[in-house]
Design a protein around this nucleic acid. Structure first.
Length: 484
RNA sequence: UCCCCGAUAGCUCAAUGGUAGAGCGAGCGGCUGUUAACCGCUAGGUUCUAGGUUCGAGUCCUAGUCGGGGAGCCA
């Protein structure tokens, strides 16, 4: 008797016998001599309808007491359904209960509408719902597509470190990694303990001075905020590489788009400029969206019906149309024109200032109505490693803005000229010694290269139409919450 | 971190400063090749916490905790 997943059972030859296992979604009893059980095992969106006859030995004692969430194993014949709503169903010949729901009244995932906020408190059970099961499958599909995309194009996956003792990751607030005891514990006067390690150098000004030479790594260590600097070294030897792994930011960000622990994809390509970088980003996004539509039509149609009625249409539009490309300078002009026409922004538009979320939203949702790549930002508002343009004022940085999501990709051509890089380090008052190995890449056979970072969960948001990033990662970590 | 809003049954929400309610879910019964089933009955409450105002507080005031929306930071 073959054991089949529900997804295979639904495609089985009528008349074949099989055993299936899963969790009960609903049970309906018919006086015609049987009960209907919707069985889901997560292998696909749909449940398999079991038809359990009263003749089963345990019909009265067990089948009639099955409730949402019970785990069972059923054996029977897969047949064409006599009813509407499904093509295949199983005529059950034996049914074994693996685990009852002890008290159905306390089972948190009852068969009714639940809010995302409520289900977040039951992250261990929420994946049994339609929505979170679909998110999990699409997430997997996208992860596989990421690797396939790069593999097909000759990229190598590089496992950059999670722990970084190189105190040179740049800006961004980091989690400290330490085996020291009392010295790293917040003192009673140090407040909530939510304060991150803002930069390695600033920590020395705090009131207590842990002796990090005594710490595990012999120096301060942190969780990575980006694998970019490390992966650049591999790009400058293997030519086309990428990272895909967890990333940590200790920023006290409380939004639907930020996590303290998230997954990031960072390709890095040698012998390439900012235009190659933008082309790669565009091709990449389109490939991933297409993969979700092609490989998870069941889950995608659920999202389109219940989460965001325009998501499939939006994805198809993104796949079919070229991304708009605009320089920062032109973007500012467009925004200024919008203001002249009466558009009101909370924040002023001014060359030299960061584009605000409302500005990005206007560009991508109102002006172009599709993804927009903004490039060549003022050097003052971007990182030291971004390549200085010939105008001396801007750097070859690019952000991909997506409608409804905002910034989904941030990337740049890297500064490959040692003298210019050094000048930038000096301007930003960064210690050259700390970047010795990064500078070595420019000393020894330097090449133009570039890359970008894609927030994996933000990609999933865009792909599914889900609203909150906490609902597209299994166990979200955010300020004040590391449950489960 | 800043601004705004909220917290009442398992869930989603009502309730003019004056007896605590509905829908869904759950349990029981009925009906039905059913499928967000349908019909009936039943159970279910320290109204987030601590103070305060008042004859009387779910309702008003203060503080805190937690959650949501927006912003900043960013991916």
């Amino acid at each position: 008797m073959p054991s089949l997943s529900v997804t295979h059972a639904l495609k089985a030859q009528p008349g074949s016998e099989a055993t299936v296992r899963g969790w009960v979604r609903t049970r309906r009893d018919s006086k015609a001599g049987f009960s209907f059980i919707a069985l889901n095992d997560g292998s696909c969106f749909d449940a398999l309808q079991l038809v359990a006859p009263t003749a089963l030995a345990n019909y009265q004692s067990e089948v009639l007491h099955l409730t949402t969430g019970c785990s069972i194993e059923a054996t029977g014949t897969l047949v064409q359904s006599q009813g509407k709503g499904q093509s295949v169903e199983m005529q059950v010949t034996s049914l074994r209960v693996l685990g009852m729901v002890e008290d159905p009244d306390t089972y948190p995932v009852s068969p009714k509408r639940h809010t995302m906020e409520y289900l977040r408190d039951f992250a261990h059970l929420r994946v049994r719902t339609n929505t979170f099961g679909a998110v999990a499958r699409v997430r997997h599909c996208l992860a596989m597509a990421v690797h396939r995309f790069f593999h097909e194009r000759g990229f190598f996956w590089v496992h950059t470190p999670i722990i970084t003792a190189s105190d040179a990751e740049g800006a961004g607030e980091m989690f400290r990694v330490s085996t020291l005891d009392s010295s790293t514990r917040p003192t009673p006067s140090s407040g909530t303990g939510l304060q991150p390690v803002s930069t390695p150098s600033s920590s020395s000004s705090s009131s207590h001075h842990p002796d990090f030479s005594q710490d595990f790594f012999g120096k301060e260590a942190f969780l990575t905020v980006s694998g970019q600097l490390n992966v650049e070294t591999y790009a400058c030897a293997l030519s086309k590489v990428y990272t895909f792994g967890p990333t940590f930011r200790a920023e006290n960000s409380n939004t639907a788009r930020h996590l303290a622990e998230f997954w990031m994809i960072e390709p890095e390509i040698a012998f390439a400029d900012i235009h190659d970088d933008m082309n790669l980003a565009e091709e990449f996004i389109k490939y991933l969206f297409k993969a979700a539509l092609d490989e998870r039509p069941d889950d995608m149609s659920f999202f389109n019906e219940h989460i965001d009625k325009t998501v499939i249409e939006t994805l198809i539009k993104v796949i079919d149309s070229p991304f708009e490309r605009v320089t920062y300078t032109d973007a500012v002009k467009i925004l200024e024109q919008a203001i002249q026409k009466g558009k009101k922004f909370e924040y002023p538009v001014k060359w030299g200032a960061n584009l605000q979320a409302e500005h990005e939203k206007h560009l991508t949702e109102e002006v172009f109505k599709r993804p927009v790549i903004v490039r060549d930002y003022p050097k003052e508002i971007k990182a030291f490693y971004m390549r200085l343009n010939d105008d001396g004022k801007t750097v070859a940085a690019m952000d991909v803005l997506a409608p409804g999501i905002g910034e989904i990709i941030g990337g740049s051509q890297r500064e490959e000229r040692l003298n210019v890089l050094d000048q930038r380090l000096d301007e930003m008052k960064l210690p050259k010694e700390a970047y010795w190995w990064y500078r070595d890449l420019r000393k020894y056979g330097t090449v133009p290269h570039c890359g970008f970072g894609l927030g994996f969960e933000r990609l999933i948001l865009a792909c599914t139409g889900m609203q909150n990033i906490r609902d597209v990662i299994p166990f979200p970590r955010t300020p004040g919450n590391a449950k489960f």
